[in-house]
Amino acid sequence: MSSLNVLKSLLLATSVTLGFCSMPAMAEEDGKCKAVTINFLVAPEATPALLEMLRRESGATEIRVEVPGKGYTKEYNADRLRVMVDENNLMQSYMCG
């Protein structure tokens, strides 16, 4: 593995770890999505493990990954976490709804 790839991997791991450390404590309300704050320096890849961690921390019962150019329903769902990714599956933003 080249040193550039090692550096990218290290930066990604560090940013995700720092983001986890910045998560606020949240009151539990089953099924209702709550805002989660994760700070990252490098946009992480939307892996199943990261998506499950976001779903669990937000309290959402479902998660929807939204990719550019694809259509989605507009109805608000308080139980859903929406994760917006780019064409390379890198997480751009996320919100309840």
Results as ranks from 00 to 15, higher is better:
Arg55Ala: 05
Leu90Lys: 11
Gly71Asn: 09
Glu66Met: 15
Thr14Pro: 01
Asn5Gly: 10
Leu10Phe: 05
Val42Cys: 05
Phe40Asn: 03
Glu75Lys: 05
Ser15Lys: 05
Met53Leu: 10
Thr37Cys: 00
Ala43Tyr: 14
Leu90Asp: 02
Leu11Arg: 10
Leu50Tyr: 01
Leu18Cys: 13
Glu75Thr: 06
Glu45Asn: 05
Asn5Gln: 13
Gly31His: 00
Cys96Arg: 04
Glu57His: 11
Leu12Val: 05
Met23Cys: 10
Ile38Gln: 09
Lys74Val: 04
Val16Ser: 01
Ala35His: 06
Ser22Tyr: 12
Ala78Ile: 13
Glu28Gln: 11
Glu29Ile: 12
Glu75Pro: 00
Ile38Glu: 05
Val6Met: 11
Thr17Met: 05
Ala13Trp: 14
Leu90Thr: 04
Met23Phe: 09
Thr37Gln: 07
Leu4Tyr: 11
Lys74Trp: 01
Val83Glu: 03
Val6Ala: 14
Leu50Glu: 00
Gly69Asn: 04
Leu18Asn: 13
Ala25Arg: 12
Asp86Met: 04
Leu12Gly: 09
Val36Leu: 08
Lys8Phe: 10
Arg82Ile: 15
Met91Tyr: 01
Tyr72Phe: 10
Cys21Met: 13
Val83Ala: 04
Ser58Cys: 02
Met91Gly: 02
Gly71Thr: 12
Met26Gln: 13
Lys34Met: 08
Ser93Trp: 03
Glu45Asp: 10
Val36Glu: 01
Leu11Met: 13
Asn89Gln: 07
Thr73Ala: 08
Glu29Ala: 08
Leu41His: 03
Glu29Tyr: 07
Glu87Ser: 13
Ala13Asp: 15
Ile63Asp: 01
Leu11Ile: 08
Tyr94Ile: 01
Thr47Arg: 03
Cys33Leu: 12
Asp79Ala: 14
Val6Ser: 12
Gly71Tyr: 10
Phe20Leu: 08
Gly59Trp: 00
Ser3Arg: 15
Cys33Ile: 04
Leu41Val: 03
Glu45Phe: 11
Asp79Thr: 14
Lys70Val: 08
Asp86Ile: 06
Gly31Gln: 01
Met84Thr: 15
Phe40Met: 04
Gly97Arg: 01
Ser22Asp: 13
Met53Tyr: 12
Thr14Glu: 14
Arg64Val: 15
Val42Asn: 05
Ala46Trp: 01
Glu62Ala: 07
Leu12Arg: 03
Thr61His: 06
Leu81Tyr: 04
Leu18Ser: 07
Leu81Thr: 02
Ser93Val: 06
Ala60Gly: 03
Asp30Cys: 02
Cys96Trp: 03
Glu45Ser: 11
Leu41Tyr: 11
Gly69Met: 07
Met1Thr: 12
Arg56Glu: 03
Ala13Lys: 15
Val16Gly: 00
Leu81His: 02
Pro24Cys: 05
Asp86Arg: 09
Phe20Tyr: 07
Lys8Ala: 10
Ser15Thr: 15
Asp86Leu: 09
Val65Glu: 01
Leu51Val: 08
Gly97Glu: 14
Arg64Cys: 03
Arg56Thr: 12
Leu90Arg: 13
Leu18Ile: 11
Leu90Ala: 06
Ala27Pro: 09
Ser2Ile: 09
Leu50Phe: 14
Tyr76Ala: 13
Ala43Lys: 15
Tyr72Glu: 02
Arg80Ile: 05
Ala78His: 10
Thr17Pro: 00
Val36Ile: 09
Leu11Asp: 02
Glu29Asp: 13
Val85Pro: 03
Leu11Tyr: 07
Ala25Gln: 10
Tyr76Glu: 11
Val42Phe: 10
Glu66Ser: 04
Gly59Gln: 03
Asn89Thr: 02
Ser15Asp: 13
Thr47Lys: 00
Glu52Ile: 02
Gly59Asn: 02
Met95Asp: 08
Arg56His: 04
